[in-house]
Write a protein that binds this DNA or RNA. Sequence first.
DNA 1: TAATCGAAATTGGTTAACCAGTATGGGTTA
DNA 2: TAACCCATACTGGTTAACCAATTTCGATTA
Lengths: 233, 233
Amino acid sequence: MNLELLTKTENQKVQNLLIIGIRDLINYKNLEPGEKLPSERMLSEKFNVTRSNIREAIRKLEFYGLLKSIPQSGTFVANIGIIALNGMIEDILRLDEPDFKSLVETRILLELKTVRLASLRRTDEDIAQLKEALDAYIDKVSNGKDAVQEDLLFHLAIAKASGNSTMNKFMLSITPEIILKFEKHHVCDDDLAQRGIDDHQAIFNAIIDKKPQLAKQKMKEHFKELYSYCYNL
Amino acid sequence: MNLELLTKTENQKVQNLLIIGIRDLINYKNLEPGEKLPSERMLSEKFNVTRSNIREAIRKLEFYGLLKSIPQSGTFVANIGIIALNGMIEDILRLDEPDFKSLVETRILLELKTVRLASLRRTDEDIAQLKEALDAYIDKVSNGKDAVQEDLLFHLAIAKASGNSTMNKFMLSITPEIILKFEKHHVCDDDLAQRGIDDHQAIFNAIIDKKPQLAKQKMKEHFKELYSYCYNL
DNA sequence: TAATCGAAATTGGTTAACCAGTATGGGTTA
DNA sequence: TAACCCATACTGGTTAACCAATTTCGATTA
């Protein structure tokens, strides 16, 4: 297991070096945006690594929108300008692994917004799905069971109802880590969960009534314990 | 090019079907969280697809934290519970491609927060990097040149100074698409850019002075045109 | 009988050969 | 001379064989 972690960071080091190499190559060759990068085979030979390594590095830069691979044609520099490209690569290289505090902080920010948007935009179908999630949550809590999962799913249903696919995606990407941490530290005890029912119900009602300000307020109250937990970590 | 798009969506369809298949398998076999999935080879045989397809589907579920592959050992169901797993897979399958409006909406939300956090947490090194980005922006605008890239880099520098790696990552991931759309539609005309200098300078000063409320206010004003553009799209 | 050791099968990851589509350039023709 | 075409080499993507680490399970031994 230790070894696995070692090789993983080792891999990332190689990948970062390759990203630097690709960046320098673009600068050195004065590749304008839209121009073609050398082929994967040439790059792998130039940097003396396997083609898989090169493809992995390209994929990462593709994820951040800096490169674009087109089958049977080549890999192209995105049309965002050389300055933005250099700056963003610099940022990507220095990007830290997200700590839990930053995850919770971001989650709260997103949720205060999504609940507001959901109050404004929710469809009847959204309401139905919210109710389903809420009922499942209430059922679990009423039976004295752990309901971390149902809790999070209700919040995800709100994100979906917000009609903002980007925030929805972001919420999805941070939820699993939050669930893991919560279940590990037993953040949600019974008393908290009991109060959670009222909170969720209030939020749900505010969304039904299309009262964005109220919904946001209720969500804020709901997060009060989470706030304190987060900053005491 | 058309064909490329076709095959891409075709691939995504296959991938979605595989994700459904994996989900059903987990449910059918009553795999508890932490348990091992059948091997990639068995899955590829069962679903009658190539092993690459299976790995791609697993990778996607791994991205969202639902599975975890461990070399020479197997692929494991994340320890988040079967209910959360089912709910999240449902959401992932229905996830729309992000539209531009949702991107801008999210960007504004993130920036109003990062600028506030940056005012509270910025280090001296952050200040130096912000100044560098600001000077580059002012220089370009003063010479009457397009400065979309320098503009965005200043905003990314703020995200970095916020000390929140999750928001920083999110900002990075939505920036390229925003740059592309902006340069395509020539959103930033000369007059706007000229005013942008004052805005940026005011934001920068507020961050230096550690005045989070003022910084947020200035950012809000800076986004006013963007708001109108976004909602008129 | 129970603990231990090790060989063989199984695992995800890696690699090199292969594929189909694309771009290129020299030769041909109008 | 210029436009066109087809053969060839090159592209990213895919696949199947390979690898090293791990797990498993049964034979062996104390």
